[in-house]
Amino acid sequence: MISFLSTIVPAFIFVIMSIIIAYKEELGLEKKILIVCISALIQLLILGFIINIIFNLGLFFTFLMIFVMILIASYMIKNEININERSIIFLSSCFSLLFTSTISLLILIYSGIVELKPQYIIPLVGMVIGNSMNSITLCLERLLNDLKSNKDILWGYLALGANDYQAMKPFIRNAIKAALIPQMNRTKTVGLIFIPGAMVGMLLSGADPIRAAEIQIVIMWMILSGTLLSTLITCYLIYKKFMKYV
């Protein structure tokens, strides 16, 4: 407890500094900054306790936790997309995240990169789920907005004899490309502009820098492929539903 307070209390200076700057610049974000920072603290503490318990319970509860993470991520995606039939977004996101997580985990395990242990599985798969969730949300928002603003183009494709898939493919392609830009930029600049979190954590724990770099590049490649696969699957599962809102 003393160690926890000695870390958290001094670090709260960053929060206070952000609040002061927001107040001075009249941004109106003081309350939101405080809320999100306190929320992050509570959530991470709860996560720490849960993971500590799961580490001692075995693989069944590890996979159960991953499934719960997928459900939560799918629920958050569903709430961000403004259509009436949100259940299809939830189900499509669940399937794509589950499929992507499974593929990523199988590659990691059977290639011998990591061991089948909770301390490896939970954080690595969690990275795939979290980044894929953001990319899916960006992709679906872009797809829906593009369809609404360019409906004449869509109707033109259909009038010329294209089927639904052929008419939607250019929109899907542009949406996926836009959603992948943040991850592409992170992958392109890793090691040059910033040191990513996993590598920082390993370096702080005293790991060999070369080993830390090896693990980090595996993670970056895994996340990039995971975001691409999950956005692609989700788009092709729900594109017909989106056509109804054009």
Score class of each variant (00 low, 15 high):
7 T>C: 10
7 T>R: 12
7 T>W: 07
10 P>C: 01
11 A>R: 02
13 I>A: 11
14 F>K: 04
15 V>P: 09
16 I>W: 09
16 I>L: 15
18 S>N: 09
20 I>T: 05
20 I>W: 06
22 A>E: 00
23 Y>C: 07
25 E>R: 15
27 L>R: 15
38 I>H: 04
39 S>V: 12
41 L>G: 06
46 I>H: 05
49 F>I: 15
52 N>M: 03
52 N>V: 03
54 I>T: 11
55 F>W: 09
59 L>Q: 08
59 L>A: 05
59 L>S: 07
72 I>E: 12
78 K>E: 13
82 N>F: 09
88 I>Q: 05
89 I>A: 05
91 L>V: 13
95 F>V: 13
95 F>C: 05
97 L>R: 01
98 L>V: 05
100 T>Y: 06
104 S>Y: 01
105 L>P: 02
111 S>Y: 01
112 G>H: 04
119 Q>V: 14
126 G>K: 07
127 M>H: 06
130 G>S: 11
130 G>E: 08
134 N>C: 01
136 I>W: 00
141 E>N: 15
141 E>R: 15
144 L>T: 03
146 D>V: 10
146 D>K: 14
152 D>I: 13
153 I>W: 05
157 Y>V: 11
162 A>L: 09
162 A>W: 03
164 D>L: 12
169 K>R: 15
173 R>P: 03
175 A>M: 06
176 I>V: 15
181 I>G: 00
181 I>A: 06
183 Q>L: 07
183 Q>R: 12
183 Q>T: 14
184 M>V: 14
185 N>A: 09
187 T>I: 08
187 T>C: 12
189 T>W: 02
190 V>R: 00
190 V>P: 01
190 V>C: 04
193 I>M: 02
195 I>D: 00
198 A>P: 00
204 L>P: 01
207 A>S: 15
212 A>G: 06
213 A>K: 03
214 E>A: 11
216 Q>A: 01
217 I>G: 00
222 M>R: 05
226 G>P: 10
227 T>G: 02
230 S>T: 06
232 L>I: 09
233 I>F: 06
233 I>M: 03
236 Y>R: 04
237 L>V: 03
239 Y>C: 08
244 K>Y: 12
